[in-house]
Design a protein around this nucleic acid. Structure first.
Length: 722
DNA sequence: GGCTAATGCAA
DNA sequence: TATTGCATTAGCC
């Protein structure tokens, strides 16, 4: 019997159909090409299999299927169930009933009425590694105003130093994409040189340009010496264009933009996700045809989408933000990643071992107090031990059980030694796993850590840092802060560390135009003390430490759009006291309240908030039905312009500093950015010049109604320099 | 192995 | 019931 049974793998059938035929969407915009294609294929199969039985199954691996495909698989299952003449997973006779069910289902998806065909790739692909042909491709490309390219890059374990180019795709009109594998005479070096030349005469477009800077430097960067300029005079000359950065500025809320997202959003063309095409295979192991096909499509997408992305940027007034800040910054971030920072492996190990000893002691003590061994790192187990076995007073807080968060345990610690021990254990375990052991794993063959600075992640415009995150190295506790001693400059160098003094509050002063706040910044540098003096009506000299601390908390809270409750938690006071502080604050600085009301109203009207430099953050929460969501939206509306403007200013400062170093032909290099702080690995004989550049360029990055102030220190490690 | 929740580090 | 992030561990599927 089995040799006459027609076996159909439903999952594969639908996925293949999804990518094989022109896609259709229904009235709701759902992709249904896979459903249509699958039924079409079934119809074909059945018509040639009279007298046999058939069996359709849906049990093959679906883990790597895209959401669109999975959704369609679900729909097909639903349709089959509804039809009731085919049972999935069971042998079925090919009857007229079955045939007409398939036929009718197919007809219901016919591309008429509410069903419309979506756009598709039109280009043809040319693959060549022939030197003459490649030369010809670049020659013809150089006659085009706009040329897109995309590198196939292999990276071992994400290590920065292991990056290798496998090939390059190029596209300069909508008819053809080229893929040039790296073989023989076509080296990564050669391709880089061709791109460098090309960048003099054509605007180069790609996706995630930071990844390609290790193969070439665009002419506009190579040739540049001046810092940030607030103009658009360069619009007629060739400029690089990163579709990823453009798409991010247009929608900074989207999590990870990938090429298929750009394709879908701007061209309407569905493309398989990179991970669906290549899985976990290293790119160097991938089938050449599959690779070149994907690469060609990537170049085509960059070429075709860039004008649309630019148009949207212009419409939103973000063209200058894009060309004058984000694009040059991208190169600077690359240069910082490439430079990296030395981390002393032995010192890290020693530090970790020391922690390990104390951790083991604490473990023992805690097990004794608990009367049994358990996993202290598991909040579930810890909660059960503390609040059930030992019967401590519990605040049931989390979805899954007791909260064992630090603020809960801190209240119990004075009365219960075991809780104090748990807190100490937690602190040390954190330092060991995340920092001592965690950082050591990222030290590469040059003894340095090369973090990734991500430019297209945050909703507000900040940079983020990953693998490892060098923007959250401990600072507040002495033990944690000691980690910074393992970060050291190379021979003949020191670190210069410069940070803005309260940049966000100064931006608030500027944007709110509150005269009290503005004059406070002209009066002196201890803004918290000044605020305390004004809020509590006491002479500046008589402000108590408590008053200053409270004023500081309010100053910080205001930037986040804080509530009475939030302040009360932060200061461990009652909500009514917190309310009083807030009221006094707003009496002192009435412009701040007016400003907050204004930005909330504007965000409600426009649907987004905006920085001084035109960066937008959409706030859909403001239209939510849920009160809490709307409240959140209001806090975001108050915070985003401030945090975002601070990010803009820092980016401008980085461009100023980078090109000032270059103009003066200094050897010192920017290596870290921590939101309001820059670190330069500084040659000793350049120390004074570098400090001067840092302070001057950061302070002149924006012209506000209050001065921007920068503190700068040097030291022989990061601990000392900060 | 992929995903989420809880936790805690930074500005 | 404070803004923006990222990494780790457990624990579940």
């Amino acid at each position: 019997m089995s040799d006459t049974t027609l076996l159909i793998d439903g999952n594969k059938l639908i996925r293949d159909a999804f990518y094989a035929i022109p896609d259709f969407t229904d009235a709701d915009g759902n992709h249904i090409g896979g459903i249509y294609g699958a039924f079409y294929k079934i119809k074909e199969l059945l018509s040639g299999a009279d007298g046999q039985t058939f069996k359709i199954t849906f049990d093959s691996e679906t883990g790597s299927f895209s959401k669109d495909v999975l959704w369609q698989i679900g729909k097909v299952k639903e349709l089959i169930e509804k039809g009731a003449v085919i049972k999935a997973g069971e042998e079925t006779d090919i009857t007229d009933d079955v045939k007409s069910f398939v036929e009718n289902t197919l007809l219901s998806f016919s591309p008429s009425g509410e069903v419309k065909e979506t756009p598709k790739f039109k280009h043809s692909l040319v693959v060549t590694s022939d030197l003459n042909e490649v030369e010809d491709i670049f020659k013809r490309a150089s006659e085009s105003e706009r040329v897109s390219y995309y590198f196939a890059i292999d990276k071992k374990d994400g290590a920065f130093l292991s990056k290798k180019a496998l090939g390059l795709s190029v596209c300069f009109d909508e008819t053809t994409a080229y893929y040039i594998p790296v073989v023989n005479f076509i080296t990564a070096d050669y391709l880089g040189k061709k791109l460098s030349e090309l960048s003099k005469v054509s605007s180069l477009v790609t996706f995630d340009i930071k990844e390609s800077f290790c193969f070439y430097i665009p002419f506009e960067i190579e040739n540049r010496e001046n810092g940030y300029e607030d103009d658009d005079k360069l619009s007629s000359s060739p400029r690089c264009f990163d579709v990823l950065i453009g798409a991010y500025l247009n929608n900074p809320l989207k999590n990870d933009y990938e090429i298929h997202d750009i394709s879908k959003e701007y061209l309407g063309i569905p493309l398989q996700k990179k991970s669906d095409v290549f899985g976990k295979t290293a790119l160097s192991e991938v089938d050449e045809n599959i690779l070149s096909d994907y690469m060609g499509k990537a170049a085509f997408i960059c070429y075709a989408s860039s004008p649309l992305i630019l148009k949207k940027l212009s419409k939103s007034g973000m063209e200058k933000l894009f060309y004058n800040i984000e694009m040059p910054l991208s190169y600077i971030l690359f240069a910082m990643e490439k430079e990296g920072i030395i981390a002393k492996k032995d010192a890290l190990k020693e530090y970790g071992d020391k922690l390990g000893v104390r951790i083991a002691e604490l473990e023992k003590t805690i097990y004794e107090a608990a009367g049994c061994e358990f996993n202290i790192n598991s909040p579930k187990q810890l909660g059960e031990i503390l609040f059930e076995k030992l019967g401590l007073p519990a605040e049931k807080k989390t979805k899954s059980g007791y909260s064992t968060a630090a603020d809960v345990l801190e209240k119990l610690a004075p009365d219960h030694k075991v809780v104090a021990d748990v807190l100490e254990y937690r602190g040390l375990a954190k330092l060991k796993s995340t920092y001592a052991d965690g950082l050591a794993a990222f030290i590469e063959s040059d003894g340095r850590i090369h973090t990734s600075f991500n430019q297209t992640i945050t909703a507000t415009g900040r940079i983020s840092s990953t693998e490892p995150n060098l923007q959250n190295i401990p600072m507040r506790t002495e033990l944690g802060r000691l980690i910074r001693k393992v970060f050291v400059p190379k021979d003949s160098c020191v670190f210069a560390d410069a940070d803005y003094s309260q940049i966000e509050l100064r931006i608030l002063a500027h944007m709110s135009e509150d005269q009290g706040l503005i004059s406070a910044y002209h009066e002196g540098d201890d803004i918290h003390r000044i605020t305390a003096s004004k809020v509590f009506h006491v002479p500046f000299e008589e402000v108590t430490p408590l008053q200053r601390r409270n004023a500081k908390a309010v100053n910080f809270g205001i930037v986040y759009g804080m509530s009475n409750y939030g302040l009360s938690q932060d200061l461990s006071i009652s909500v009514s006291e917190a309310k009083e502080y807030m009221a006094k604050y707003f009496d002192t600085y009435p412009g701040v309240r007016t400003y907050q009301d204004r930005v909330i109203q504007e965000a409600k009207n426009k649907g987004y908030s905006e920085t001084l430099f035109g960066r937008r953050r959409p706030i859909p929460e403001l239209k939510a039905g849920n009160f809490m969501m709307r409240q959140f939206g209001e806090r975001v509306a108050m915070n985003a312009p401030i945090q975002g403007t601070a990010a803009d200013i820092m980016k401008i400062a980085m461009i100023n500093v980078f090109f000032a170093l270059k103009k003066k032909s200094l050897k010192s290099r920017l290596i870290l950015q921590i939101h309001d702080e820059l670190v330069i690995e500084t040659y000793q004989d350049e120390e004074d010049l570098v400090k001067d550049i840092l302070v001057k360029e950061m302070e002149r990055a924006a012209d506000l109604s209050v001065p921007l102030e920068v503190d700068c220190h040097t030291g022989s490690d990061w601990y000392e320099a900060k």
